[in-house]
Design a protein around this nucleic acid. Structure first.
Lengths: 338, 338
DNA sequence: ATGAAAGCGCTAACAC
DNA sequence: GTGTTAGCGCTTTCAT
């Protein structure tokens, strides 16, 4: 069942059918009705692959996230989906599993399937994936993780501000020995999250202790493991900040396992504020990130580029969204005598 | 940059380039090398849209879920993604938001984009979407919600068994007045989940009280709202079961708000066992559903149909996955004196 | 082992 | 207002 078939059945040419299907003005009201009737009766659905080949656009956007097991990304995805559906675009979803090769493979796959644009939350700062994206001539938006020294379009959250805010708050509450659990980023430099943590420390005249800094893949288990290690290595700390709430949940688990009370024995601040973190006991103090907005705005910005390809390529816009400390129950004031 | 271009640069015809790109045997080792070199140098990426048009297959699978805000679905999605990536397929992801029209629109969209197959968790039993799917001639798999009187391929969980198991357990623990929060399904019949609940009740000689049965969209807020209503209507109940853990979280919230203790004042059993439910206080007793497996197997079965389209259409296989009661801390034995 | 040519289903100039 | 036709980038039969 193709357009030629519909044309025959309605006694017109395929161009005419094409015209009515695309709401072109120049078609007689009666022929239009006639064609529409046939389309209706046959249940004909146009072949968008053929259409895409001709038009050189697919109305689909590729999305690459490291890990769809993390609620953070799902929330972002919801925002993306919302905007894209409004604009009649589809999502082609890929997961990189924090694997550079899979990221690369996925990008090529998306490119070969001719997506009109790509939204990516890169595995690493300056990953090979980002480099590929840059030479590919497909509009793309980076999200979540800002890229150092890179002029790309993106909607970001300032990770260093998140950790700095969290650390400041902990220090104001009397904590000095603060552990940080960040995400593993294969870059040469320290992650932004750790940078912000160090900045806060230094602003308060506190020495950095490297044994308090750990990087890992952000999931519950690794949060648990990190604290377990810290404890079994007898590292002293009274508070911890994590780069995502999932990691914080792992910390809760470890605390429970080793008989440490939150916040009495350990204070903890998460980051991203997933919907479930307020239901923990105690409710998690965390840094709120506008996840849905992050997605929505990413899609919005990307679509702007997709729609006018002629736009000066050299320009690029970076938007940094606001974050906010959400005080709940997982931080406690530490007295000097403690 | 297309195949013709590559052909010129390597001094061969497009057919030859196509052959090396598709690993056809019949090509001289030297020409192959020559072509591969050019491909490498130019960074040429084949146009899969053109390829798809010719081959009538896209190597992409459409997935339609009601709500990606619910962790249940993204666990299923993870399973799907895993299998599909192994087999070199992409996912086109759609959300129906429990909206029948959006479901319909999405199915048509996927059809027009010529996905090789569709995995859908339908909004309702016997929804219009399912009907569309059936006449569409695209292989599809239903997941999550089994369809009454419908012979379709699917990987399911027996919702009535879930609720029956939960209710049994509550009754064994002395509860008689048990509320049930199920998902809103626009069908004429009661939802499977409520059916299983009623079966358990009747097997134990307990009268059904309709004021204890509520159906809503499954999210945290509605769980909260339901309990709030029950309380303000002075409906007596000592336990509640919910069709998903998210709803149970809402119940926790309501309990806290109205000064009811779990499990002392209300016992509760969830359903699906999302990763975070064990971190609630008390940890949620729930029915485990093999979410990742559900997704993986759905993809696996679908791919079987996609790969041999010639297979007898009339056959269909339905697999029902096992569920399991996970006893944690949200259920308490009710004494007669209570 | 390689090339020429047809055709996948559609759109859009162009002609009428 | 409508039809004819070329062509989007690829694969594949057929010929050589």
């Amino acid at each position: 069942m193709d357009i030629t078939h519909i044309a025959k059945l309605s006694g017109v040419s395929k161009s005419t059918v094409s015209r009515v299907l695309n709401n072109s003005k120049k078609v007689n009201i009666n022929t239009r009705k006639k064609v529409l009737k046939v389309v209706e009766d046959t249940g004909y659905i146009p072949n968008n692959i053929a259409r895409s080949l001709k038009l050189k656009k697919t109305k689909t956007i590729g999305v690459i996230f490291p890990d769809i097991g993390n609620p953070f990304y799902f929330e972002v995805l919801r925002g993306i989906e919302k905007k894209l559906y409004e604009e009649d675009f589809n999502i082609m979803l890929c997961t990189s599993d924090y694997d550079d090769n899979k990221e690369l493979t996925n990008i090529s796959l998306l490119a070969s399937k001719k997506v009109d644009g790509i939204i990516a939350a890169p595995n690493y700062e300056n990953s090979r994936g980002v480099a590929l994206l840059q030479k590919l001539d497909i509009p793309f938006i980076l999200t979540d993780l800002p890229q150092d020294n890179l002029k790309t379009n993106g909607i970001f959250v300032d990770h260093s501000k998140c950790s700095c805010t969290a650390t400041d708050y902990l220090i104001e509450n009397g904590h000095r020995r603060i552990a940080v659990i960040s995400a593993k980023r294969n870059a040469d430099t320290t992650s932004k999250f750790v940078q912000g943590y160090m900045r806060s420390l230094s602003e308060h005249g506190i020495q950095v202790d490297n044994s308090l800094i750990v990087e890992c893949y952000p999931n519950i288990y690794n949060g648990y493991l990190t604290i377990k290690e810290l404890i079994s290595n007898k590292i002293d700390f009274s508070a911890v900040i994590t780069i995502c709430d999932l990691l914080a949940i792992g910390v809760y688990k470890a605390a429970r396992r080793f008989g440490l009370k939150i916040p009495e024995d350990i204070s903890i601040i998460g980051n991203d504020n997933i919907p479930l973190s307020k239901f923990l006991t105690p409710p998690l103090t965390t840094i709120h990130q506008p996840k849905i907005l992050l997605g929505y705005k990413s899609a919005e910005l990307l679509l702007r580029y997709v729609k006018n390809k002629d736009k000066p390529k050299k320009s690029h816009s970076t938007v940094t969204l606001d974050i906010k400390l959400i005080k709940r129950g997982s931080v406690r004031r530490k007295d000097d005598k403690d």
